[in-house]
Computed example of a mutant assay.
Amino acid sequence: MGWGSAGIKIFDPVARALIDAGTDPQTREDVLADIIEALQNEDWDTQQDSLDLFLNDPPTVAAFARHGITHPDHETAQPAPPPASDDCGCGHDHWKWKCAKEAGGCGYASPFSSRDKDDALAALNAHREDCTVWQATVSERAQRTTGTEPPR
Rank of each mutant, 00 (worst) to 15 (best):
A123S: 12
A65V: 04
V61M: 01
L18V: 09
Q47P: 02
A80Y: 06
H92F: 10
P111C: 08
T27H: 07
T137W: 07
T23L: 06
I36Q: 00
I19F: 08
R152I: 10
T60P: 00
D119E: 13
S85K: 14
L32C: 06
D130E: 15
N125W: 08
A21S: 14
I19V: 15
D43P: 00
D12Q: 12
T23V: 09
T46R: 12
R144L: 08
A84H: 14
G104V: 06
H74V: 02
L39I: 04
C99N: 10
V31T: 14
D116V: 10
L32G: 02
S113T: 09
N41F: 07
L51G: 00
A62M: 03
Q143N: 10
C88F: 15
T132I: 12
K117G: 03
L18W: 03
A84T: 13
G104Q: 03
R16W: 03
R16K: 14
I19P: 00
I10D: 11
K117I: 01
C90H: 13
K101S: 15
A100I: 07
G4C: 04
C90I: 13
D12K: 13
K117Q: 10
F112E: 13
E29I: 01
V31I: 15
E149W: 01
W95Q: 08
D119N: 02
D57V: 09
S114G: 00
C90P: 04
F11R: 00
Q40G: 03
E129N: 07
Y108H: 15
Q48T: 06
P79Y: 02
D86K: 06
V133Q: 13
S50E: 00
E129A: 13
P58V: 08
L124M: 11
A136C: 08
Y108R: 06
T145P: 00
A15I: 01
V138E: 08
A33F: 05
N125K: 14
A17P: 06
A122K: 14
P25H: 04
D118L: 10
N125I: 12
D130Y: 11
K98P: 00
G89S: 05
H71E: 05
